[in-house]
């Protein structure tokens, strides 16, 4: 009896530590494969740090391979920013609307719809952007490239909206009712109350929503892979084709030789993504904690 209890407790504790271990392992194993870029002379010769971050051509499978990450970084940035600019305001205003103004039945419809949206596999969103959205946008705006950063950004917005909405809505509804009553008692109307009292009170949470949405956007792969055109062009134009860091891994890892320079470069990109999303997540959750502390008056 006693030892059964012991065994169970040990197993349960072990699985909890497995979670920590998993995160550490991810970091170690991706970092390990990226490390040769710093340590191995032959890899360094082919893909030096200066080349990685100083040149603007990404051409890993030509006779003279070139590994400039800048076009990929720029592509990621373009797509992510468009996604946040399109999805962010939409999600935030929807969150504000549901928490402050919407009658209960609208809330009952809107919340499950957002959950439904979150449930759409990203490959389906990518598919939709590629098959339908792209043609539609092109026929309206007459862009040269059917698949471009704007197209990918808009599709990506669909993936960003649920997370931004959920976190922001949580933050807004966690503002105590007494704040609102206090404001209304001073003669403010619903709009003034929402804008001057509730939003400032929930600000850390709203900010966290944007940060977490950003993290979701830079990591998303399939949508960008399918909808952006995937050309690593170093240009500021939003209507050019673009390629993101994550899509590069997906598109090329299948074709590189294990242990070759491009293989390590792809893992370097992976490490970059991991660290970036790790930091945005930490920041996001830190802001959520700040909000809780603020509302509890600490």
């Amino acid at each position: 009896m006693r030892w059964v209890e012991r065994c169970i407790e040990t197993t349960i504790r072990a699985s909890a530590f497995t979670v920590i271990l998993a995160l550490v392992l991810i970091f170690v194993f991706i970092g390990k494969e990226a490390l040769p870029i710093l340590t191995s002379p032959s890899v360094r010769q082919e893909a030096s740090l200066r080349q990685l971050f100083g040149t603007i051509v990404w051409q890993p499978v030509s006779t003279v391979p070139q590994y400039g990450l800048l076009p990929l970084l720029l592509g990621t940035l373009k797509v992510t920013v468009i996604a946040l600019l399109v999805g962010g305001p939409l999600a935030l205003s929807a969150a504000l609307f549901t928490s402050e103004f919407a009658p209960p039945w609208v809330r009952e419809v809107l919340k499950p719809s957002v959950e439904l949206l979150a449930g759409i596999p990203s490959v389906v969103l990518g598919f939709f952007a590629l098959m339908v959205l792209a043609s539609w946008l092109q026929s309206v705006f007459g862009w040269t490239y059917r698949l471009n950063a704007v197209n990918a950004g808009i599709a990506l917005a669909f993936a960003v909206i649920p997370i931004v909405y959920t976190v922001a809505e949580d933050a807004l509804t966690s503002v105590p009712r007494s704040y609102r009553e206090g404001s209304i008692a001073m003669g403010a109307d619903a709009w003034q109350t929402a804008w001057r009292v509730v939003v400032p009170a929930a600000f850390p949470g709203i900010f966290a929503a944007c940060v977490l949405g950003f993290g979701r956007a830079i990591g998303e792969t399939m949508i960008v892979l399918m909808a952006s055109g995937n050309a690593p062009i170093f240009s500021a134009a939003l209507t050019d084709s673009a390629r993101s860091l994550s899509a590069t891994i997906a598109a090329e890892l299948g074709e590189v030789v294990v242990g070759s320079a491009p293989y390590h470069v792809l893992f370097l990109i992976g490490s970059l993504l991991f660290v970036l999303t790790f930091l945005t997540n930490l920041a996001g959750h830190w802001f959520v904690t700040r909000l809780r502390e603020k509302l509890e008056g600490r």
Binding site: I26, I30, E33, L212, G219, E220, L266, G270
Partner: peptide, 9 residues
């Protein structure tokens, strides 16, 4: 928060 593609890697 880890991107799906990183899990793939």
């Amino acid at each position: 928060g880890v991107p799906a593609i990183v899990f793939g890697l």
